[in-house]
Amino acid sequence: MLLGEELRLIAYNTAIKHNITTSMVHKGLYQLGVSGCPWKDADIVEALGDLGDYGVHNLFAVERIARISEVHPYSRVKGLLYHSYESLGVKERDENGEFIAPKLLWKENFFNRNERGEGNAP
C-alpha cells in the first residue's frame, strides 16, 4: 500500500497524462480497495488512466477493473484492459446467459454489514 503523499502524486501525474481527473482516480481506487481488488494501488491508478484514454470512466472503469482483476493479475492485462471480456478470457455471462456482476462492495453495504456484525465499518 502506498503512502498518502505518494499516492496523491501518482494520481495527479495520471490525471495529467490521461483522460481522467484526480477525483475519478481517488474514488475508483477507494472503491476497488474497499471491494478487495487484488491489484496494487499503483496498478489500479495506471489502469484507471488507461481506461480513461478509451473513454471508460467512473463506475464503468471500476466495474471493468473489478471484473478483470478476479481473473488476471495486472501484469498479464496491462495495456489490454479496453479489449473485450471474451478476448481477455473473462466470462461475462453464466451458463444461463445471465450477466455476471463484478463483486463490488459499496460503502453503504460496508456499513450495513457492520450493523449486522459481519465486518468493520471504515
Rank of each mutant, 00 (worst) to 15 (best):
N112E: 15
V62D: 00
S35D: 10
D43A: 05
E108W: 13
V90P: 03
S75K: 13
Y74D: 02
G28W: 10
L88D: 03
D50N: 07
A47C: 08
H72L: 14
L81W: 08
G49V: 02
P38Y: 02
L105S: 12
Y82M: 08
G79S: 09
S35V: 01
E95W: 10
R64D: 06
L104C: 03
D43F: 02
E108N: 15
P73Q: 15
E92Y: 07
K91R: 15
D94C: 12
L29V: 09
Y30E: 07
V71C: 13
E98H: 15
V77I: 15
I68V: 15
G89E: 02
K27S: 14
L105H: 06
V56P: 01
D41R: 09
K40T: 00
N120C: 08
S69R: 05
L29R: 05
A61N: 00
K27R: 13
G36F: 00
G49M: 09
G33D: 01
A42T: 06
V62T: 08
G28M: 10
A61R: 02
R64Q: 10
K40Q: 12
L104G: 04
H26Y: 09
S75E: 14
I100G: 00
K78I: 05
F99L: 10
F60C: 08
E98P: 01
E95D: 11
Y30D: 11
S87F: 01
E115M: 12
W106G: 04
G89W: 05
L80I: 03
H72I: 07
I68Y: 06
E92V: 09
R113N: 11
Q31R: 11
R64M: 11
E118K: 15
L32P: 00
D41M: 05
D50V: 07
Y85Q: 05
Y54K: 14
